[in-house]
């Protein structure tokens, strides 16, 4: 069974291009710390083209969180900007990259969006 985080990165890699990141270029490394163990994911963005590697390495931005929180971020249960302000997620390097990649994360699973009432009434 593949966990949420792996699925998220595999999906990005498969997608190959993300229009929301078309103006973004740079390399992010996600360090998921659990006790002495750290899992690394590297995301390379080149004007929206994406490449994912599960490896350590140089990056413009290094994001650090616990694996559980990260799974909740990429699952939409938690919000990355709030996590950053709380100190539950740390960022070293170019913060802008994180704020752009964060927009690719889904919204909360229980969010329904606008309450459309196509009643045909109204004006």
């Amino acid at each position: 069974m593949v966990d949420t985080t792996t699925r998220f990165f595999e999906d990005l890699d498969r997608r190959g291009f993300e229009p929301l990141l078309a103006k973004t270029s740079g390399t992010l490394r996600f360090d998921l710390h659990e006790g002495p163990h750290t899992t690394h994911w590297v995301l390379e963005i080149d004007h929206g083209s994406l490449r994912v590697r599960q490896a350590d390495g140089e990056a413009d931005t290094v994001v650090g969180t616990e694996p559980r929180l990260f799974a909740e971020l990429v699952g939409g249960e938690e919000n990355a900007i709030a996590a950053l302000l709380r100190g539950d997620m740390t960022v070293m390097g170019d913060l802008r990259l994180v704020l752009q990649v964060e927009r690719v994360f889904p919204g909360p699973p229980d969010s329904r969006g606008p309450h459309h009432t196509f009643s045909g009434r109204g004006a």
């Binding site: 919000n79 969010s111 969006g113």
Partner: peptide
Amino acid sequence: AALQGTRFDDFRDED
């Protein structure tokens, strides 16, 4: 533009 909404988030009234 860089912070334009991308998803539905009812808590933030984001669309």
